[in-house]
Structure formats: C-alpha cells, structure tokens
Design a protein around this nucleic acid. Structure first.
Lengths: 122, 122
DNA sequence: CGTCAGTGACTACATGTGTAGTTTCATTGA
DNA sequence: TCAATGAAACTACACATGTAGTCACTGACG
C-alpha cells in the first residue's frame, strides 16, 4: 500500500534522508544545487509528500519542519523489487546478466560484487 | 532522446518482443492473459507507441501489423541505467548489496550470479 | 445488395506530475 | 503601531497515463 513517490518528489526525499528535520527553505536550498526548481516547486512537492504521509511535519513557530516517515532503505527495497519484477521477471540474475552484457559492469564492480556474495554465503 | 515507454505500454511491448508482427487483436489476445484490459485499451496503447515510433506499422489490407522498432535489450539497458543512476548513484554494487540485504536473493540466485561473474572474467 | 462484424481514428475523462503563481496571515523591525 | 517580509495554503495549468467509449468505414456473408 506504500504510497508512490514521483521522480521530482524523490529528489526532495534524498535531501531529507541526508538530514532532517529541515524547513522548506532549507530543503529548497539543498535541492536547488541539483535541480533548477523554484522554492514554490519544492514547497509543493513537500506538501504532496506530507499529504501522502511520506514525510511528517512538525510545527516550529510559524513554519514547519519536515522529516521523512519512510526509511530510504525501505523505499529502495520497494522500488528495486518492483523494478526487477516488472523488467526481469522478478529474478536478479537476468538483471545482472544484462548489465554485464551491456558493459555496465566494470572489472571493479565485478570484483566487489563477488566479494559481497562471498560474504553473504557465510 | 529515446521515447519514454509507460508501464502499460511496456506490457504491450513484451508481447511484441516475443512475436511480431501482430495485429492489434492478436496483441490484445496475448495481453489479456496478463492484464484485464479491453481491446480498445490495447489499441490505444499501440497507437501511442506507434505515435512515439516505438512500434512500426505495416498495412495489411484493412488492418495493421505492429512490430517493435526498439530492441528489448536496448530498452532494458536504458531503463536499467536510468534506474541505477537515479537510485544507486550509478553503481551496481549498492543495488546488488541492497537486494541481498533485503533478502531478495536466494542461495540459488547467489550461486547463479557467481557463476555468471566467473564467466565474465574470462 | 444490404447488413453486420471487425478495424483504425478520434474522443473522453479522472488522476498523477512537473512546475509554478497568488493569496492570506502572522511576525518582526522601524 | 504599521508596513514589509516570509511562510503555509490554495490555485493553476499543460502534459502524461490508465482505461476505455464512440464513430466511420469497409469487406465478407447471407
């Protein structure tokens, strides 16, 4: 049932996942380093996220402090699963195979992943 | 510049990637096994894909035959790259690590991926 | 030859998304 | 005290998307 987070909203979430709580202005300051958006745009996104209960608000005098209510990890798990399901029939192997074939994996990547898998088996 | 393919459109593409060219009715027949859509819906999706030049049309009497103009592999590469870039800073390792931590990888998966990586190094 | 079924073309319409502008209200500095 | 400032709330608006409905045409069948 977890609410959908759009691309633009995601950029805002990344800021809050780094540091929170923040005011809208502080979030906008950070977001603007990446995206060329106006303060109003960021505020709209924050409102939408709050409406979806993906971020929480806490009154601080006349303004709000925003904090994520969803863990970044949980979010990533959700979208990753969805992604792998939709595009690779739910199997991770074809995804890795595809990335490998498409030369998206460097030798370093391969070594790191092998290392990781070795750890996992313990 | 490659045109965006929406989720619903993607389901249609999967059918055409399996076999093509097909008529709209044939595509719909296949799609309906997965999604509970009407023939009209599938036709709309085909039109939109054709408008975006993601599928090509060839007149066959009074109807059309549809074929993909985009390779499945190229499409997958595009979306995978985009996905990994947006969510994992362009690195595949964190993605695999994440899936692993989230217990999305079975022991079989791990073995298969190791096998694949071993092959790659040759 | 007239009718019907199948086909593409066009239309529809609610909701989501990107991207703000405008309004209203309270606080604070002069 | 009063005006300017800054914050949230509300409004806007075009385009994308999911999900069809309707229309007009044409060829096949009786």
């Amino acid at each position: 049932m977890s609410e959908r987070i759009s691309d633009a909203e995601h950029a805002v979430m990344e800021v809050l996942w780094k540091r929170a709580p923040l005011t809208a202005a502080e979030v906008a300051d950070q977001v603007v380093r990446e995206k060329d958006w106006s303060l109003q745009t960021v505020k709209t996104l924050l409102s939408r996220l709050a409406a979806k209960a993906v971020v929480g608000t806490e009154r601080d005098g006349r303004r709000f402090l925003y904090s994520p209510l969803v863990e970044r990890d949980d979010y990533l798990t959700g979208v990753s699963r969805n992604f792998v399901d939709r595009l690779f029939g739910g199997k991770v192997m074809p995804l890795v195979a595809h990335l490998a074939e498409a030369d998206e994996l460097s030798a370093d990547d391969i070594r790191e992943i092998e290392e990781l898998l070795r750890e996992l088996k313990k």
